[in-house]
Design a protein around this nucleic acid. Structure first.
Lengths: 214, 214
DNA sequence: TAGATTGTTAATCGATTAACAATC
DNA sequence: TAGATTGTTAATCGATTAACAATC
């Protein structure tokens, strides 16, 4: 019995899920660790080690059943649960998240949007109500919300999160470029776009440039 | 002399840059590896090891000069170069990237947007021309573009990238949920939002659930 | 059965941490 | 100078790869 998967595995898990989904769509029904490792650019050994963290998903001499494996990984990642989300901030990024349709099919629902601006409040976007910020805490507590998507600037975000009184477990999907400080019942996943862009420029400009006087 | 920093270090570098920027804004001018490690949640040892990949940036008995260190890390990541970008696709996500102002100050400029829809072509958004897809290749070759931001669906994205004839080094900032296959003069940095969201649900639902029959 | 392929242990590799001499 | 703190080597830890017995 293992209690926690390593961060290295967690970073790869959703990618397995995506490849398995694609294989299913192509009508495949089984795959070996060797083939899967080839299309994903890993080693077969690593694939087997990774999948073995959770249980015995494969069958000797056969490989893995793709549908079963996909489901199991989905369960491990918690996307078999419905997840109800609210958006904190209604700017352009929030708008594009609302308009992105890919989440719905995986059980993610955006229930409400909270914005500072009184002009926007009271209206709806795609059937989702835009509400005033001072109703956020009550809304979370009364509508089994478990995810807050943060798309407002970092100082405002930290301020609001710090003052939230919520006792259940809450996930924060954080697009603000800061490391939010949260109470222990919060978990945070960051999407730091500007850091991602810097990693790209490193790959463009930095790779052959590093040298240390020796 | 070291030629390449490890991926683990690359993942941390932009975060150093962000913390150093914040420290500068607060009027600080020097910091020790111990203090920096405390505010970033790392060990002092790791900070010194990380920074030593690039040169001797510190001074015994003193610590690191924040402005100097920030500049040097900026250089390592290549953000001292101007970067000219084009957007591939003009949907809601592309719109929010255009509207996001944070990049400009770091030398990133969006030069043009390319979209399949003929209705949009010929118009401007915030002074940026929206052009037809068939002009993409020429535009990249003639306007020292070095970054393509991909915000169109994966199949269309792969198709267009596969057929691009460009010989200079190009970076792709990929928001499509696929691992793009590219020629060797391309480098890719992925922003897989749905994978990020799954890591969040893992933190919410998965952490205490994993068990293997033993 | 024979071939294929897993699950798992052992070996290797790489990244993190600890320790301390060098030196500002 | 004495105290502070780096740069760097050595020790530890963890993740990846290799190997192979188990078994479908």
């Amino acid at each position: 019995m293992k209690n926690k998967i390593s961060n290295a595995v967690l970073m790869r898990l959703p990618r397995y899920y995506r490849y398995l989904s694609d294989l299913l769509k192509n009508g495949e029904d089984r795959i070996s660790s060797k083939k899967l490792s080839e299309i994903m650019g890993l080693t077969a050994s690593q694939v087997r080690q990774d999948l073995n963290h959770f249980g015995e998903f494969g069958l000797q001499g056969y490989g893995y059943n793709i549908q079963f494996l996909k489901n199991e990984i989905g369960k491990v990642m918690g996307i078999d649960h419905p997840n109800s989300m609210v958006l904190l901030g209604y700017g352009n990024l929030a708008h594009s998240i609302i308009k992105y349709s890919g989440f719905k099919s995986k059980g993610f629902t955006i229930k409400a949007v909270f914005d500072r601006s009184n002009k926007k409040c009271g209206t709806y976007i795609d059937g989702i109500p835009i509400l005033p910020l001072n109703e956020l805490e009550d809304y979370i507590n009364n509508n089994d919300i478990n995810i807050i998507i943060v798309t407002i600037p970092k100082d405002a975000a930290q301020n609001i999160i710090s003052n939230l009184k919520v006792s259940k477990k809450i996930g924060i999907w954080n697009f603000a470029s800061t490391d939010l400080k949260t109470p222990s019942n919060f978990v945070v996943e960051n999407v730091h776009l500007s850091e991602s862009l810097m990693r790209l420029t490193y790959k463009l400009w930095g790779e052959n440039k590093i040298q240390k006087r020796s």
